[in-house]
């Protein structure tokens, strides 16, 4: 055996050894549960008693369950609006924070801070902000603005919106709240922006490019891998949206308009003790995420610019 061969073997072994902790972690905490859930999805399983194989009954029941479609619809609605919105907001903030202004470090910290607040206290705070009677959004925004416009421009706008109790608004509250945690994406965009080579901007300047042209021709193409990463993470994150909704809208009130898919999984598993059914739902969600991620990858494929690649 040649020396290079031995070396290569040694390296491979070292590599495997280093990857081992992750691999063990993945197998124990993700791989096994994933496969176990797949098996469970074909059983009647209450957690309390051993699973009993029932074939595809859970899946058949699932596809006839109105609430399955409603909760899936709610989740897709939230994802549909929150993904683009949070991308635009995070990217916009990152660009602003990338400009040289006094107190730059302070602003960066300031805009990231909300992302650090734990979800449950946050949800309780939002409950008060959006309260339909005394919420600050109603008393300080909707009421004065509505009253003024109605008086001066003779419009017929509402002076009070029941954000949490009216099914026309409740879902948009969830979308709005998801903006609160854009800090994470923002930081990644910010790091990406700093990677954009300065000479390109200088060259663009010399060519007489406007600010918009610089953004469109230099910044966005070079940032595209980061955008792709963030968008995919945002899709996955929004489909798994749970905590705030669970705290703020018990049972998906009003009229299950805020009942998210994840809430249905949780309730099926732990309230109704139907772990088999919940596992089936979990797997359906897994496939949906797989499909959407794949679609996103395909979409970005032609648009992403890889430096040096």
């Amino acid at each position: 055996m040649s020396e290079t061969n031995i070396r290569a073997k040694k390296e491979a072994r070292a590599g495997l050894l280093f990857a081992l902790p992750w691999f063990i972690g993945f197998s124990v905490f993700l791989g096994y549960p994933l496969l176990k859930a797949l098996y469970n999805s074909f059983t009647d399983y209450s957690i309390l008693n051993p699973p009993v194989f029932i074939g595809a009954k859970n899946y058949i029941d699932l596809f006839q369950d109105k609430l399955f479609y409603q909760s899936l619809g709610n989740t897709l609605y939230v994802a549909f609006f929150s993904v683009p919105l949070s991308t635009v907001v995070a990217l916009g903030l990152a660009m602003l924070l990338n400009t040289k202004v006094k107190g730059q470090a302070f602003y960066r910290t300031f805009f990231f801070l909300p992302a650090l607040v734990p979800a449950v206290p946050l949800a309780i705070l939002w409950l008060w902000l959006f309260n339909g009677e005394q919420g600050i959004i109603n008393t300080m925004m909707i009421e004065p603005i509505g009253t003024w416009l109605n008086a001066n421009l003779h419009t017929h706008l509402p002076t009070n919106i029941n954000f949490l109790g009216d099914k026309a608004y409740a879902k948009s509250v969830l979308v709005l709240m998801s903006m609160w945690t854009t800090g994470h994406a923002m930081v990644i965009y910010l790091a990406g922006l700093q990677e954009v080579p300065k000479p390109l901007y200088e060259a663009a300047d010399i060519d007489g490019a406007s600010a918009w042209q610089r953004t469109k021709m230099v910044t966005l193409p070079l940032l595209s891998p980061v955008i792709m990463f963030n968008v995919i993470m945002a899709i996955i994150g929004s489909l798994q949206y749970f905590t705030q909704a669970y705290v703020m809208f018990p049972g998906g009130a009003p009229e299950q308009s805020t009942y998210l898919y994840t809430m249905y999984i949780f309730d099926s598993a732990f309230r109704d003790l139907r772990m088999g059914y919940a596992s089936a739902m979990g797997w359906v969600m897994f496939l949906i995420i797989l499909l959407l991620t794949n679609a996103a990858l395909k979409f970005f494929d032609s648009k992403v610019h890889y430096e040096g690649g």
């Binding site: 309260n131 339909g132 009677e133 005394q134 009070n160 029941n162 949490l164 109790g165 009216d166």
Partner: peptide
């Protein structure tokens, strides 16, 4: 309906 729901909310 809306009136009573807002009342309840508050």
């Amino acid at each position: 309906s809306g009136t009573v729901q807002s009342f309840k909310e508050g």
